[in-house]
Amino acid sequence: MISLKDVTKRYGSKRALDQVNLELTSGKLIGLVGENGSGKSTTLKLIAGLNHPTNGEIKVSGNKVDRRIAQSVSYLSELDEYYRFFNVRQSIAFYASQFKDFDQEKAYEILKFMKLNPNDKLKHLSKGNRGRLKIVLSLSRNVPVILMDEPFSGLDPMVRNSIVKGLISFIDLEKQLVLITTHEIREVENILDEVIAIKDGSIIGHHNVEQLREEKHTSIVDWMTDIYE
């Protein structure tokens, strides 16, 4: 589904990713974890075709990635920037017009779950509600790959857990691959199938979460703490 072969990304003299090799298969919810500046966001942008690898090759569903891969990849950015003159309903309509696979019915279903008012102007939404809208817009696309960069960062800790659990019901785990970067590892731990740890631009671990629990008797947080130390 997604393959990265010897992918290196440099920003000037800084190496953001170094010879990364990854094979990710569909039907999984995968967490990409690591400290700030480790290369998580860069990895997602490269898969979304919004950045170009310095070396190596990235493929999604067998197709070499460029910006137009957006037709089969839904990307949620960590940035909090939107067209603020739209209201929630207009944002959904705009996305529906731009992406053929956008499911408006699903969007309003998730919107209801997120307790967002379709008539609210984006410029009047709180940061948390803008974060919820980002999730609505990215999950409403029926695409094989969904990339979410820090989707829970603006959400209240009180509701974060229920939103994380609710997300599962809006993902087609038979057909879709969801790759999430997050710092809220404890909250997402229970929904992840695989976890990938990245440090200084290199993959330092890639595990099945169930196996990690059963064979190594450890949680993702403890495993991460171990390998980071």
Binding site: K45, A48, L50, R67, R68, A70, Q71, Y75, S77, L79, E81, Y82, Y83, Q98, F99
Partner: peptide
């Protein structure tokens, strides 16, 4: 420019 991630994330040509 402030929201290139939105503007460029589209199947539409430049």
């Amino acid at each position: 420019r402030r929201r290139l991630h939105l503007w460029l994330h589209t199947p539409m040509s430049i």
